[in-house]
Amino acid sequence: MTKPLLTVRGLVKHFPIAGGLFGPKKVVRAVDDIAFDVMDGETLGIVGESGCGKSTTARLLMHLMDPTAGEILFDGAKVGTPDLSLTEYRRQVQMVFQDSYASLNPRLTIESSIAFGPQVHGVPQREAIERARDLLAKVGLEPSRFAGRYPHELSGGQRQRINIARALALRPKIVILDEAVSALDKSVEAQVLNLLLDLKDEFKLTYVFISHDLHVVRYMSDRVMVMYLGKVAEIGPSEAIFDDPFHPYSAALTRSMPTMDPDNRTNEAPLFGDPPNPIDPPPGCRFHTRCSLAEGVCAQREPVLTRAAELHDVACLRSEPGSGHSAAPAVAA
């Protein structure tokens, strides 16, 4: 694998919420100390259930909100330093949102929406418009038919193509796709996924692909990061995560996918109950309350991300040498 393009270290985001009038101030631990790399040219999938912090991570990566702690390095340079201004960083990293309609200004024509970004970065208007029309063709929309239209005149799939074109207008290296195909109909979703793969090849893009649809994540991603309650549970090659996961949560997640086999339906739910509230996460390993392999130590000791196989890290006491869990490997001498 190549060098890391994006490096995330110790990223934390806590949202304060109003406690009772005299109650203690509470925080939602949306993202709680995560670290990972995004390699140049790969697609990193992020999966997890609601409240796991995957969307917050996307917004933090995009610098749409300030992290409580931690840093993000792009190509080795820290964002917001003289080496790499925030404006320059935003040219390099772009994002596609889930709601295709809400992410387009209803009062702007399609080409104006796409051309806005380049104009902000000093591209003359005419050139920006030309670039917008080129991109429209690239995302499969006839420029002469669509450039002058408004968002409400288009279908969801067409709008999402435009959002992709808008993200590409700054010629970024990384595109963050936050549930970008989740709202589309299945027959349209396949078209957009194909388009994303084509564009990745053509523009040598790196994707961070966030979705709750495990089939789609598996199809799109080279590596997958599984998040649970603001923590990284496991990160590794896509096949390994889906076929041979180390973390009990990753295993439960993949076994929750519908079987597509009427003769071998799922007969027992891999997990019971819902994910706990990130306001008050369980102590120790956050998954221990739902984990069938949990032991006493899991409620006390917080697992750290440990290398379990090549390029494959897992945060589980079962894989952590000397953790005290009965399945844990012995400490290497």
Partner: peptide, 26 residues
Amino acid sequence: NRDYVEAARASGAKALTIIRVHVLGN
């Protein structure tokens, strides 16, 4: 709080530009 304003922020536009292009009209 609409995504298109977020997207405009993500493109690196300054607050005044965003207000002029994306907020005022709406």
